[in-house]
Design a protein around this nucleic acid. Structure first.
Length: 194
DNA sequence: GACCGGATGTACT
DNA sequence: GTACATCCGGTCG
């Protein structure tokens, strides 16, 4: 399925379809990135979403066209990457990658971590890919980010989202089954799985 | 492995 | 003032 078609879907559908896509940053220092293995969806009517309180200076990118990048700053030290979908106020948080390209370059940005811990969290992957805050509110096509379609099919499962305090039962976190590169694994048979 | 707390800026009550 | 879509290094076991 074409990326532009995926981004036309509701975020809670599109988020699952992005599992298996390869996210690369064609950074001047060298290309780096990996396969998307974990995403979360956020929407306008979702109390856990930044856009829930409306179109503000901070959340404006979430109201842009599909393919807009929303990078936000949080906890005083971390940045997280979202890919905005067409529906107003909806976006997909990219939470974890299976590293495939430029592992040593990513270690230079992140530290001497194992493959499994290099990109297994939303702020970690932003750091590993060296994504600049300047990408915020830009369209993918205006950045050096590349999204390549999956080379194979991925089985996924849905769970509760991580690190939020509102709408905690909404099962809008999507994971590649059996991936070793998730921020937190909640297999289907475990408590917490929805 | 688990749990805890510190770092630190911005948005909102 | 408090909460926050987090990470990491310390502790205890």
């Amino acid at each position: 399925m074409d990326l532009s078609l995926i981004l036309r879907l509701p975020a809670c559908v599109a988020a699952e379809k992005l599992i298996g896509w390869q996210l690369l940053h064609d950074h001047p220092g060298g290309k780096r990135g990996g396969i998307i293995v974990e995403t979360e969806a956020y929407t306008l009517t979702d109390p856990a979403s930044h856009s829930f309180r409306g179109n503000t200076a901070r959340t404006k990118p979430m109201f842009g066209p599909g393919g807009t990048i929303y990078i936000y700053f949080t906890y005083g030290m971390h940045y997280c990457l979202n890919i905005v979908t067409d529906a107003p106020g909806e976006a997909i948080l990219v939470r974890a990658l299976e590293p495939t390209v430029g592992l040593n370059l990513m270690r230079q940005s992140r530290g001497p971590w194992t493959d499994q811990k290099l990109c297994n969290g939303p702020a970690k992957l932003v750091q590993a890919l060296s994504l600049p805050l300047a990408y915020n509110n830009k369209h993918l096509s205006q950045t050096k980010l590349l999204l390549l379609p999956p080379m194979k099919s991925y089985k996924t499962y849905a769970t509760r989202r991580v690190g939020i305090t509102k709408a905690i039962d909404t099962p809008w976190r999507f994971c590649a089954q059996k991936s070793l590169f998730l921020s937190k694994d909640i297999p289907p048979h475990m408590p917490g799985h929805l």
